[in-house]
Design a protein around this nucleic acid. Structure first.
Lengths: 220, 220
DNA sequence: GACTGTGAAGCCATTCACAGCT
DNA sequence: AGCTGTGAATGGCTTCACAGTC
Protein backbone atom coordinates (compact mmCIF):
# COMPACT_ATOMS: atom_id res chain seq x y z
CA UNK A 1 0.00 0.00 0.00
CA UNK A 2 1.32 3.41 -0.91
CA UNK A 3 1.27 5.74 2.06
CA UNK A 4 -0.69 8.91 1.69
CA UNK A 5 -2.74 7.73 -1.26
CA UNK A 6 -6.23 9.09 -0.96
CA UNK A 7 -7.61 7.65 -4.16
CA UNK A 8 -10.01 4.80 -3.59
CA UNK A 9 -9.51 2.38 -6.42
CA UNK A 10 -12.58 0.32 -7.17
CA UNK A 11 -10.96 -3.07 -6.72
CA UNK A 12 -13.95 -4.93 -8.13
CA UNK A 13 -12.80 -5.97 -11.56
CA UNK A 14 -15.63 -5.76 -14.01
CA UNK A 15 -15.68 -8.58 -16.56
CA UNK A 16 -15.24 -7.40 -20.10
CA UNK A 17 -18.19 -9.55 -21.07
CA UNK A 18 -20.29 -7.42 -18.73
CA UNK A 19 -19.29 -4.25 -20.57
CA UNK A 20 -20.17 -5.78 -23.91
CA UNK A 21 -23.56 -6.83 -22.58
CA UNK A 22 -24.23 -3.39 -21.09
CA UNK A 23 -23.77 -2.01 -24.58
CA UNK A 24 -26.30 -4.53 -25.88
CA UNK A 25 -28.74 -3.63 -23.09
CA UNK A 26 -28.42 0.06 -23.92
CA UNK A 27 -29.33 -0.68 -27.53
CA UNK A 28 -32.39 -2.61 -26.47
CA UNK A 29 -33.42 0.07 -23.99
CA UNK A 30 -33.17 2.70 -26.70
CA UNK A 31 -35.38 0.48 -28.80
CA UNK A 32 -37.93 0.30 -25.96
CA UNK A 33 -37.76 4.04 -25.44
CA UNK A 34 -38.53 4.63 -29.09
CA UNK A 35 -41.66 2.54 -28.57
CA UNK A 36 -42.62 4.67 -25.56
CA UNK A 37 -42.15 1.92 -23.01
CA UNK A 38 -41.76 3.50 -19.58
CA UNK A 39 -40.97 0.55 -17.35
CA UNK A 40 -39.23 -2.75 -17.99
CA UNK A 41 -37.85 -5.78 -16.12
CA UNK A 42 -34.66 -7.81 -16.09
CA UNK A 43 -36.67 -10.54 -17.82
CA UNK A 44 -37.64 -8.34 -20.74
CA UNK A 45 -34.14 -6.93 -21.14
CA UNK A 46 -32.73 -10.46 -20.95
CA UNK A 47 -34.95 -11.62 -23.79
CA UNK A 48 -34.05 -8.64 -25.91
CA UNK A 49 -30.37 -9.18 -25.35
CA UNK A 50 -30.33 -12.97 -25.55
CA UNK A 51 -29.16 -13.61 -21.98
CA UNK A 52 -30.69 -14.66 -18.62
CA UNK A 53 -32.50 -12.30 -16.23
CA UNK A 54 -30.04 -13.09 -13.43
CA UNK A 55 -27.22 -12.07 -15.73
CA UNK A 56 -28.82 -8.72 -16.40
CA UNK A 57 -29.24 -8.02 -12.70
CA UNK A 58 -25.68 -9.12 -11.86
CA UNK A 59 -24.25 -6.95 -14.62
CA UNK A 60 -26.12 -3.90 -13.37
CA UNK A 61 -25.22 -4.67 -9.75
CA UNK A 62 -21.57 -3.93 -10.50
CA UNK A 63 -22.49 -0.28 -10.88
CA UNK A 64 -25.27 0.37 -8.42
CA UNK A 65 -28.96 -0.14 -7.81
CA UNK A 66 -31.00 1.15 -10.69
CA UNK A 67 -34.30 -0.65 -10.22
CA UNK A 68 -37.22 -0.78 -7.81
CA UNK A 69 -37.99 -4.09 -6.14
CA UNK A 70 -41.36 -5.43 -7.10
CA UNK A 71 -41.58 -2.96 -9.99
CA UNK A 72 -38.61 -3.08 -12.35
CA UNK A 73 -36.56 -0.43 -14.12
CA UNK A 74 -37.46 2.93 -15.57
CA UNK A 75 -36.38 2.67 -19.21
CA UNK A 76 -35.31 6.29 -19.67
CA UNK A 77 -33.40 6.34 -16.41
CA UNK A 78 -31.62 3.00 -16.80
CA UNK A 79 -30.71 3.88 -20.36
CA UNK A 80 -29.10 7.09 -19.15
CA UNK A 81 -27.20 5.29 -16.40
CA UNK A 82 -25.76 2.74 -18.79
CA UNK A 83 -24.83 5.37 -21.33
CA UNK A 84 -22.97 7.27 -18.63
CA UNK A 85 -21.21 4.09 -17.44
CA UNK A 86 -20.04 3.38 -20.98
CA UNK A 87 -18.97 6.98 -21.45
CA UNK A 88 -21.50 7.54 -24.22
CA UNK A 89 -22.59 10.86 -22.76
CA UNK A 90 -19.37 12.32 -24.15
CA UNK A 91 -18.27 12.84 -27.74
CA UNK A 92 -15.51 10.56 -28.93
CA UNK A 93 -13.74 11.91 -31.98
CA UNK A 94 -11.67 9.23 -33.70
CA UNK A 95 -9.33 8.78 -36.62
CA UNK A 96 -9.33 5.97 -39.15
CA UNK A 97 -6.24 4.72 -40.94
CA UNK A 98 -6.68 2.65 -44.09
CA UNK A 99 -8.91 4.03 -46.80
CA UNK A 100 -9.64 0.73 -48.53
CA UNK A 101 -13.03 -0.88 -48.96
CA UNK A 102 -13.52 -1.70 -45.31
CA UNK A 103 -12.24 1.66 -44.15
CA UNK A 104 -14.56 3.56 -46.45
CA UNK A 105 -17.54 1.49 -45.36
CA UNK A 106 -16.81 2.16 -41.70
CA UNK A 107 -16.17 5.87 -42.28
CA UNK A 108 -19.55 6.16 -43.96
CA UNK A 109 -21.34 3.73 -41.63
CA UNK A 110 -24.19 5.58 -39.96
CA UNK A 111 -24.10 3.32 -36.91
CA UNK A 112 -20.92 4.94 -35.68
CA UNK A 113 -21.89 8.56 -35.85
CA UNK A 114 -25.22 7.87 -34.22
CA UNK A 115 -23.67 6.68 -31.00
CA UNK A 116 -21.33 9.55 -30.28
CA UNK A 117 -18.34 8.31 -32.24
CA UNK A 118 -17.47 10.46 -35.15
CA UNK A 119 -14.54 10.07 -37.42
CA UNK A 120 -12.71 13.37 -37.75
CA UNK A 121 -9.91 12.14 -39.97
CA UNK A 122 -9.31 9.37 -42.50
CA UNK A 123 -5.70 8.60 -43.41
CA UNK A 124 -3.81 6.37 -45.80
CA UNK A 125 -0.17 5.59 -46.54
CA UNK A 126 -0.99 4.77 -50.13
CA UNK A 127 -1.10 8.08 -52.03
CA UNK A 128 -3.79 6.79 -54.38
CA UNK A 129 -6.92 7.35 -52.30
CA UNK A 130 -5.56 10.52 -50.73
CA UNK A 131 -7.59 13.44 -51.92
CA UNK A 132 -10.67 11.28 -52.34
CA UNK A 133 -13.63 12.14 -50.20
CA UNK A 134 -15.68 9.88 -48.00
CA UNK A 135 -18.83 11.84 -47.42
CA UNK A 136 -17.71 15.09 -45.85
CA UNK A 137 -14.26 13.80 -44.84
CA UNK A 138 -11.34 13.76 -47.22
CA UNK A 139 -8.56 11.19 -47.07
CA UNK A 140 -5.30 12.70 -45.85
CA UNK A 141 -1.70 11.52 -46.07
CA UNK A 142 -0.14 10.24 -42.86
CA UNK A 143 1.84 13.46 -42.33
CA UNK A 144 -1.25 15.20 -41.04
CA UNK A 145 -1.96 12.54 -38.41
CA UNK A 146 -0.36 14.29 -35.42
CA UNK A 147 -1.91 17.61 -36.33
CA UNK A 148 -5.48 16.26 -36.50
CA UNK A 149 -5.10 14.14 -33.38
CA UNK A 150 -3.86 17.04 -31.33
CA UNK A 151 -6.26 19.62 -32.72
CA UNK A 152 -9.35 17.46 -32.28
CA UNK A 153 -8.21 15.84 -29.02
CA UNK A 154 -8.57 12.37 -30.53
CA UNK A 155 -8.05 9.38 -28.25
CA UNK A 156 -9.43 6.58 -30.44
CA UNK A 157 -7.81 5.14 -33.56
CA UNK A 158 -9.37 2.67 -35.98
CA UNK A 159 -7.09 0.50 -38.10
CA UNK A 160 -8.35 -0.87 -41.42
CA UNK A 161 -5.10 -1.46 -43.25
CA UNK A 162 -3.88 -4.83 -44.63
CA UNK A 163 -2.28 -7.28 -42.17
CA UNK A 164 1.33 -6.43 -43.05
CA UNK A 165 0.91 -2.73 -42.24
CA UNK A 166 -1.14 -3.10 -39.05
CA UNK A 167 1.72 -3.23 -36.53
CA UNK A 168 3.45 -0.16 -38.02
CA UNK A 169 0.25 1.85 -38.15
CA UNK A 170 -0.50 0.89 -34.57
CA UNK A 171 2.89 2.15 -33.40
CA UNK A 172 2.46 5.29 -35.45
CA UNK A 173 -0.90 5.99 -33.80
CA UNK A 174 0.58 5.50 -30.34
CA UNK A 175 3.38 7.92 -31.18
CA UNK A 176 0.79 10.45 -32.22
CA UNK A 177 -0.88 10.18 -28.83
CA UNK A 178 -3.74 7.73 -29.43
CA UNK A 179 -4.86 5.91 -26.27
CA UNK A 180 -7.23 3.23 -27.59
CA UNK A 181 -7.25 1.24 -30.82
CA UNK A 182 -9.83 -0.79 -32.67
CA UNK A 183 -7.92 -3.09 -35.00
CA UNK A 184 -9.91 -4.45 -37.96
CA UNK A 185 -6.89 -5.89 -39.73
CA UNK A 186 -6.48 -9.67 -39.64
CA UNK A 187 -3.22 -9.41 -37.69
CA UNK A 188 -2.69 -9.21 -33.93
CA UNK A 189 -0.74 -6.10 -32.93
CA UNK A 190 1.52 -5.67 -29.91
CA UNK A 191 1.56 -2.28 -28.24
CA UNK A 192 2.46 -0.85 -24.80
CA UNK A 193 0.19 -2.20 -22.04
CA UNK A 194 -1.30 1.20 -21.28
CA UNK A 195 -2.81 1.33 -24.77
CA UNK A 196 -6.22 -0.28 -24.97
CA UNK A 197 -6.36 -2.50 -28.05
CA UNK A 198 -9.28 -4.49 -29.37
CA UNK A 199 -9.03 -6.83 -32.28
CA UNK A 200 -12.11 -7.22 -34.46
CA UNK A 201 -11.78 -9.82 -37.15
CA UNK A 202 -14.84 -10.92 -39.14
CA UNK A 203 -13.37 -14.01 -40.67
CA UNK A 204 -12.61 -15.28 -37.16
CA UNK A 205 -16.34 -15.38 -36.57
CA UNK A 206 -16.95 -17.06 -39.91
CA UNK A 207 -14.46 -19.70 -38.88
CA UNK A 208 -16.37 -20.36 -35.69
CA UNK A 209 -19.42 -20.96 -37.90
CA UNK A 210 -17.62 -23.40 -40.16
CA UNK A 211 -16.18 -25.23 -37.18
CA UNK A 212 -19.66 -25.71 -35.77
CA UNK A 213 -21.21 -26.70 -39.10
CA UNK A 214 -18.38 -29.15 -39.57
CA UNK A 215 -18.45 -30.85 -36.17
CA UNK A 216 -22.23 -30.94 -36.10
CA UNK A 217 -22.33 -32.96 -39.27
CA UNK A 218 -19.63 -35.29 -38.03
CA UNK A 219 -21.49 -36.10 -34.83
CA UNK A 220 -24.83 -36.77 -36.50
CA UNK B 1 -28.72 -43.73 -21.76
CA UNK B 2 -30.42 -44.71 -24.98
CA UNK B 3 -30.15 -48.43 -25.61
CA UNK B 4 -28.51 -49.52 -28.80
CA UNK B 5 -26.82 -46.22 -29.49
CA UNK B 6 -23.44 -46.88 -31.07
CA UNK B 7 -22.42 -43.33 -31.78
CA UNK B 8 -19.66 -42.13 -29.49
CA UNK B 9 -20.27 -38.48 -28.86
CA UNK B 10 -17.14 -36.56 -27.99
CA UNK B 11 -18.35 -35.29 -24.63
CA UNK B 12 -15.45 -32.88 -24.23
CA UNK B 13 -17.01 -29.50 -24.81
CA UNK B 14 -14.60 -27.26 -26.59
CA UNK B 15 -14.67 -23.65 -25.39
CA UNK B 16 -15.71 -21.19 -28.04
CA UNK B 17 -12.75 -19.04 -27.04
CA UNK B 18 -10.52 -21.94 -28.06
CA UNK B 19 -12.03 -22.00 -31.55
CA UNK B 20 -11.51 -18.28 -31.95
CA UNK B 21 -7.89 -18.62 -30.88
CA UNK B 22 -7.30 -21.55 -33.23
CA UNK B 23 -8.36 -19.25 -36.04
CA UNK B 24 -5.84 -16.68 -34.84
CA UNK B 25 -3.12 -19.32 -34.60
CA UNK B 26 -3.84 -20.48 -38.14
CA UNK B 27 -3.40 -16.90 -39.38
CA UNK B 28 -0.07 -16.60 -37.62
CA UNK B 29 1.08 -19.99 -38.89
CA UNK B 30 0.25 -18.98 -42.44
CA UNK B 31 2.30 -15.87 -41.84
CA UNK B 32 5.24 -18.01 -40.66
CA UNK B 33 4.83 -20.34 -43.62
CA UNK B 34 5.04 -17.42 -46.01
CA UNK B 35 8.37 -16.55 -44.40
CA UNK B 36 9.57 -20.14 -44.91
CA UNK B 37 9.70 -21.01 -41.24
CA UNK B 38 9.68 -24.79 -40.91
CA UNK B 39 9.43 -25.31 -37.16
CA UNK B 40 7.89 -23.27 -34.38
CA UNK B 41 7.02 -23.50 -30.67
CA UNK B 42 4.04 -22.80 -28.44
CA UNK B 43 5.98 -19.77 -27.18
CA UNK B 44 6.37 -18.26 -30.63
CA UNK B 45 2.75 -18.90 -31.56
CA UNK B 46 1.65 -17.44 -28.23
CA UNK B 47 3.55 -14.23 -28.90
CA UNK B 48 2.12 -13.94 -32.37
CA UNK B 49 -1.40 -14.47 -31.11
CA UNK B 50 -1.15 -12.43 -27.93
CA UNK B 51 -1.74 -15.29 -25.48
CA UNK B 52 0.32 -17.55 -23.18
CA UNK B 53 2.27 -20.63 -24.32
CA UNK B 54 0.27 -22.86 -21.95
CA UNK B 55 -2.91 -21.62 -23.55
CA UNK B 56 -1.69 -22.57 -27.00
CA UNK B 57 -0.79 -26.08 -25.86
CA UNK B 58 -4.09 -26.56 -24.03
CA UNK B 59 -6.07 -25.38 -27.03
CA UNK B 60 -4.30 -27.81 -29.33
CA UNK B 61 -4.60 -30.64 -26.81
CA UNK B 62 -8.38 -30.67 -27.29
CA UNK B 63 -7.82 -32.07 -30.75
CA UNK B 64 -4.75 -34.27 -30.51
CA UNK B 65 -0.98 -34.24 -30.28
CA UNK B 66 0.52 -32.22 -33.07
CA UNK B 67 3.97 -31.44 -31.77
CA UNK B 68 7.18 -33.21 -30.87
CA UNK B 69 8.47 -32.91 -27.31
CA UNK B 70 11.75 -31.10 -27.10
CA UNK B 71 11.36 -29.86 -30.67
CA UNK B 72 8.11 -28.01 -31.29
CA UNK B 73 5.62 -28.00 -34.14
CA UNK B 74 6.03 -28.32 -37.87
CA UNK B 75 4.47 -25.15 -39.25
CA UNK B 76 3.08 -26.63 -42.45
CA UNK B 77 1.65 -29.63 -40.66
CA UNK B 78 0.09 -27.80 -37.71
CA UNK B 79 -1.38 -25.24 -40.06
CA UNK B 80 -3.05 -28.01 -42.03
CA UNK B 81 -4.40 -29.66 -38.89
CA UNK B 82 -5.95 -26.45 -37.63
CA UNK B 83 -7.42 -25.64 -41.01
CA UNK B 84 -9.03 -29.07 -41.08
CA UNK B 85 -10.36 -28.67 -37.52
CA UNK B 86 -11.96 -25.36 -38.45
CA UNK B 87 -13.35 -26.81 -41.66
CA UNK B 88 -11.29 -24.49 -43.82
CA UNK B 89 -10.27 -27.30 -46.13
CA UNK B 90 -13.76 -27.10 -47.62
CA UNK B 91 -15.39 -24.35 -49.67
CA UNK B 92 -18.11 -22.40 -47.88
CA UNK B 93 -20.37 -20.58 -50.29
CA UNK B 94 -22.44 -17.95 -48.52
CA UNK B 95 -25.13 -15.39 -49.21
CA UNK B 96 -25.25 -11.81 -48.00
CA UNK B 97 -28.46 -9.89 -47.36
CA UNK B 98 -28.30 -6.10 -47.16
CA UNK B 99 -26.57 -4.26 -49.97
CA UNK B 100 -25.84 -1.06 -48.06
CA UNK B 101 -22.43 0.38 -47.34
CA UNK B 102 -21.37 -2.31 -44.93
CA UNK B 103 -22.75 -5.10 -47.10
CA UNK B 104 -20.93 -3.88 -50.17
CA UNK B 105 -17.67 -3.53 -48.27
CA UNK B 106 -17.93 -7.09 -46.97
CA UNK B 107 -18.92 -8.49 -50.37
CA UNK B 108 -15.86 -6.90 -51.89
CA UNK B 109 -13.56 -7.58 -48.92
CA UNK B 110 -10.68 -9.70 -50.12
CA UNK B 111 -10.15 -11.21 -46.68
CA UNK B 112 -13.24 -13.35 -47.04
CA UNK B 113 -12.60 -14.92 -50.39
CA UNK B 114 -9.02 -15.73 -49.45
CA UNK B 115 -10.03 -18.04 -46.65
CA UNK B 116 -12.50 -20.28 -48.47
CA UNK B 117 -15.57 -18.19 -47.92
CA UNK B 118 -17.01 -16.82 -51.07
CA UNK B 119 -20.20 -14.91 -51.44
CA UNK B 120 -22.31 -16.43 -54.19
CA UNK B 121 -25.28 -14.11 -53.82
CA UNK B 122 -26.01 -10.58 -52.57
CA UNK B 123 -29.65 -9.73 -51.84
CA UNK B 124 -31.67 -6.72 -50.80
CA UNK B 125 -35.31 -6.01 -50.00
CA UNK B 126 -34.94 -2.42 -51.13
CA UNK B 127 -35.38 -2.41 -54.92
CA UNK B 128 -32.94 0.46 -55.33
CA UNK B 129 -29.60 -1.34 -55.22
CA UNK B 130 -30.97 -4.38 -57.05
CA UNK B 131 -29.34 -4.63 -60.42
CA UNK B 132 -26.19 -2.94 -59.15
CA UNK B 133 -23.04 -4.96 -59.28
CA UNK B 134 -20.52 -5.57 -56.54
CA UNK B 135 -17.52 -6.77 -58.43
CA UNK B 136 -18.66 -9.85 -60.31
CA UNK B 137 -21.82 -10.37 -58.22
CA UNK B 138 -25.02 -8.53 -58.93
CA UNK B 139 -27.54 -7.61 -56.25
CA UNK B 140 -30.70 -9.71 -56.51
CA UNK B 141 -34.20 -9.22 -55.11
CA UNK B 142 -35.20 -11.50 -52.23
CA UNK B 143 -37.32 -13.73 -54.48
CA UNK B 144 -34.21 -15.44 -55.77
CA UNK B 145 -32.93 -16.33 -52.30
CA UNK B 146 -34.24 -19.93 -52.16
CA UNK B 147 -33.08 -20.66 -55.69
CA UNK B 148 -29.50 -19.54 -55.10
CA UNK B 149 -29.26 -21.22 -51.70
CA UNK B 150 -30.42 -24.54 -53.06
CA UNK B 151 -28.46 -24.43 -56.27
CA UNK B 152 -25.18 -23.46 -54.61
CA UNK B 153 -25.70 -25.57 -51.47
CA UNK B 154 -25.29 -22.52 -49.27
CA UNK B 155 -25.25 -23.03 -45.50
CA UNK B 156 -23.99 -19.63 -44.33
CA UNK B 157 -25.91 -16.35 -44.38
CA UNK B 158 -24.51 -12.90 -43.63
CA UNK B 159 -26.90 -10.18 -42.47
CA UNK B 160 -25.99 -6.53 -43.07
CA UNK B 161 -29.43 -4.91 -42.99
CA UNK B 162 -30.55 -2.15 -40.58
CA UNK B 163 -31.60 -3.17 -37.05
CA UNK B 164 -35.34 -3.16 -37.72
CA UNK B 165 -35.10 -5.64 -40.59
CA UNK B 166 -32.63 -8.05 -39.00
CA UNK B 167 -35.07 -10.41 -37.28
CA UNK B 168 -37.23 -10.78 -40.41
CA UNK B 169 -34.25 -11.41 -42.65
CA UNK B 170 -32.94 -13.97 -40.17
CA UNK B 171 -36.22 -15.88 -40.25
CA UNK B 172 -36.33 -15.64 -44.02
CA UNK B 173 -32.84 -17.13 -44.28
CA UNK B 174 -33.76 -20.00 -41.98
CA UNK B 175 -36.85 -20.72 -44.09
CA UNK B 176 -34.62 -20.85 -47.13
CA UNK B 177 -32.47 -23.53 -45.49
CA UNK B 178 -29.57 -21.54 -44.05
CA UNK B 179 -27.86 -23.28 -41.10
CA UNK B 180 -25.51 -20.61 -39.76
CA UNK B 181 -25.76 -16.84 -39.61
CA UNK B 182 -23.32 -14.00 -39.10
CA UNK B 183 -25.35 -11.00 -37.97
CA UNK B 184 -23.70 -7.62 -38.52
CA UNK B 185 -26.81 -5.61 -37.70
CA UNK B 186 -26.90 -3.84 -34.33
CA UNK B 187 -29.87 -5.91 -33.18
CA UNK B 188 -29.89 -9.32 -31.45
CA UNK B 189 -31.92 -11.88 -33.39
CA UNK B 190 -33.76 -14.88 -31.99
CA UNK B 191 -33.83 -18.02 -34.10
CA UNK B 192 -34.35 -21.77 -33.54
CA UNK B 193 -31.64 -23.31 -31.36
CA UNK B 194 -30.32 -25.54 -34.13
CA UNK B 195 -29.33 -22.47 -36.13
CA UNK B 196 -25.85 -21.20 -35.31
CA UNK B 197 -25.97 -17.44 -34.91
CA UNK B 198 -23.11 -15.07 -34.25
CA UNK B 199 -23.57 -11.40 -33.59
CA UNK B 200 -20.80 -9.06 -34.73
CA UNK B 201 -21.30 -5.47 -33.74
CA UNK B 202 -18.47 -2.97 -34.19
CA UNK B 203 -19.89 -0.24 -32.05
CA UNK B 204 -20.05 -2.69 -29.15
CA UNK B 205 -16.27 -2.84 -29.30
CA UNK B 206 -15.98 0.92 -29.54
CA UNK B 207 -18.08 1.15 -26.42
CA UNK B 208 -15.70 -1.13 -24.57
CA UNK B 209 -12.95 1.32 -25.54
CA UNK B 210 -14.84 4.35 -24.28
CA UNK B 211 -15.70 2.55 -21.05
CA UNK B 212 -12.04 1.86 -20.45
CA UNK B 213 -10.90 5.34 -21.43
CA UNK B 214 -13.54 6.74 -19.14
CA UNK B 215 -12.84 4.64 -16.05
CA UNK B 216 -9.10 4.94 -16.47
CA UNK B 217 -9.27 8.70 -16.27
CA UNK B 218 -11.54 8.53 -13.24
CA UNK B 219 -9.13 6.29 -11.32
CA UNK B 220 -6.01 8.33 -12.09
C1' DG C 1 18.45 -28.32 -22.49
C1' DA C 2 14.36 -27.56 -24.79
C1' DC C 3 9.78 -28.10 -25.48
C1' DT C 4 5.32 -30.70 -25.48
C1' DG C 5 1.25 -32.76 -23.17
C1' DT C 6 -1.63 -32.89 -19.08
C1' DG C 7 -3.62 -33.53 -14.36
C1' DA C 8 -4.39 -30.41 -10.63
C1' DA C 9 -5.02 -25.93 -8.77
C1' DG C 10 -6.64 -21.48 -9.07
C1' DC C 11 -9.48 -18.11 -10.76
C1' DC C 12 -13.25 -15.91 -12.82
C1' DA C 13 -17.96 -15.71 -14.55
C1' DT C 14 -22.55 -17.40 -14.49
C1' DT C 15 -26.42 -19.39 -12.22
C1' DC C 16 -29.12 -20.33 -8.16
C1' DA C 17 -32.02 -19.29 -4.56
C1' DC C 18 -33.81 -16.42 -1.47
C1' DA C 19 -34.20 -12.24 1.48
C1' DG C 20 -35.95 -7.62 0.89
C1' DC C 21 -38.85 -4.17 -0.97
C1' DT C 22 -43.30 -2.27 -3.23
C1' DA D 1 -47.66 -11.31 -5.92
C1' DG D 2 -43.94 -9.50 -8.49
C1' DC D 3 -39.44 -8.17 -9.18
C1' DT D 4 -34.82 -6.55 -7.63
C1' DG D 5 -30.33 -7.21 -5.30
C1' DT D 6 -26.94 -10.45 -3.63
C1' DG D 7 -24.25 -14.07 -1.06
C1' DA D 8 -23.38 -18.82 -2.03
C1' DA D 9 -22.80 -22.55 -5.17
C1' DT D 10 -21.63 -24.10 -9.44
C1' DG D 11 -19.33 -24.65 -13.64
C1' DG D 12 -15.82 -23.60 -16.93
C1' DC D 13 -11.63 -21.58 -18.56
C1' DT D 14 -6.90 -20.54 -17.67
C1' DT D 15 -2.59 -21.06 -15.38
C1' DC D 16 0.74 -23.86 -13.02
C1' DA D 17 3.99 -27.20 -12.61
C1' DC D 18 5.99 -31.17 -13.85
C1' DA D 19 6.46 -35.78 -16.06
C1' DG D 20 7.63 -37.36 -20.63
C1' DT D 21 10.20 -37.09 -24.92
C1' DC D 22 13.73 -35.76 -28.22
Amino acid sequence: MVRGTRVIVKTTKIPEATIMRLAVYSRFLEHLRKHDTVTTSSGTIAEGAGVTPAQVRKDLAYFGEFGTRGVGYNVEELCGHIRRILGLNKKWPSVLVGAGKLGSALALYEGFNIRGFHIVGVFDVDPDPVGNRFGSIKVLPMEYLDEVIEKEQVQIGIITVPAVAAQDVGERLVEAGIKAILNFSPHVINLPVDIIVRHVDFSLHLEVLTFNLNSRRTIK
